[in-house]
Amino acid sequence: MAKVDSLQGSMDLLVLKILSRRPGLHGYAIMSAIQVISGEVLRVEEGSLYPALHRMEEAGWIRAEWVTKETGRRARLYELTAAGKKQLGAEESRWQAVTLAVNRVLREA
């Protein structure tokens, strides 16, 4: 069902990480944060952000809440759940293992 895109492998990890540092961001803010922190290197494809958020919400890693802002407009703010924290740990160690392995290949090949 889900199509593979450039960030598919690490999108979950990045979103979870951002949310673990700064709970209560809306979709646009999550996207901006990833771009700013990565020094504009990583660009989130706006089209795949929301399906990813909803998928993670469904999996119980993050939860969302509607909040009305001063402008009167409603925003959907996301934060990490306990399961999400665990997932983040798992994803991080997986990422470390993968990058380690890739580095080793680059070094020793």
Binding site: H26, G27, S32, E46, Y50, R76
Partner: peptide, 28 residues
Amino acid sequence: EIDEELEAHLVEAIAEGRDPVEARKALG
């Protein structure tokens, strides 16, 4: 709810000074 969330996304993008048409296109 999904429409409202996407709409909110566009409003943020435009507030940052992005071109509305471009922002909409980027969102798909």
